[in-house]
């Protein structure tokens, strides 16, 4: 089964954050670091955009971002992704502080976690955090036809307390995204 854990991101995962407040942020990998995000006040004519920060695992044994300093508008998204990281390298997490903190290890409002499912089977997982205790979810991954289909659009919204993830059915190669609309400190990982 795939390794499914929002606290330990791999090449198959993505961590998104929507910046709801303007200001200056500092962020890092594994801990708040020296990389910066400058969020300009909301512009009425600006349509929210997504910026991708690509992480590369280098020979020194650390992840490096392709854009250490970025500038966006309020309500824009940033996606952190390590598309070329081998599966033998350590997983990573993203932490930031500023007008509002963000933490891929404890998902809150404006956060989103995505995972590409490559193995068939039934995934049982838990959504921990928020209020009301951990809740179980399940994803049925069926074999993909050859050639693989275009990725299905599957969004699992967590917007209630307690969170109630919907059961979904997909094929291998599809991506599931979990959107946090309410609550805080959510963790998504495989159930034992």
């Amino acid at each position: 089964m795939d390794f499914l854990n929002s606290q330990q991101l791999t090449a198959l995962d993505g961590y998104f954050h929507k910046f709801l407040a303007d200001g200056d942020y500092r962020w890092g990998i594994g801990a708040v670091g020296t990389y910066t995000i400058h969020v300009k006040p909301k512009d009425p004519v600006h349509i929210p955009q997504q910026l991708t920060i690509t992480l590369t695992y280098d020979r020194s044994g650390a992840y490096q971002p392709d854009q250490p300093q970025v500038e966006i508008y309020q309500n824009d998204w940033i996606l952190w992704h390590a598309p070329n990281a081998a599966f033998s390298v350590p997983p990573y997490s993203i932490l930031g502080s500023g007008s509002a903190n963000f933490n891929s290890r404890a998902l809150g409002v404006g956060d989103m976690f995505s995972h590409i499912f490559v193995q068939n089977g039934t995934y049982r997982y838990m959504v921990g955090g928020g209020t009301g205790g951990p809740q179980n979810g399940s994803i049925q991954v069926d074999p993909a036809p050859v050639p693989p289909p275009h990725a299905a659009k599957n969004v699992n919204v967590i917007d209630a307390a307690p969170p109630k993830p919907d059961p979904v059915q997909i094929v291998s190669g599809d991506t599931i995204v979990w959107v946090i609309n309410k609550g805080s400190s959510f963790v998504i990982n495989s159930a034992q």
Binding site: A11, L12, D13, G14, F16, K18, I47, P48, Q50, T52, N75, W77, L79, H81, P83, N84, M112, S114, I116, V118, P147, P148, H150, A151, K153, N154, V155, V157, D159, G173, D174, T175, V177, V179, N181
Partner: peptide
Amino acid sequence: IPPFQVCVPIDFWGDQVCTPQYCVT
């Protein structure tokens, strides 16, 4: 995987995000 990037609407926020791909090096 997937063969090309897919974007999904996030109804709650009224905008969309594009999910990452994993590409073999």
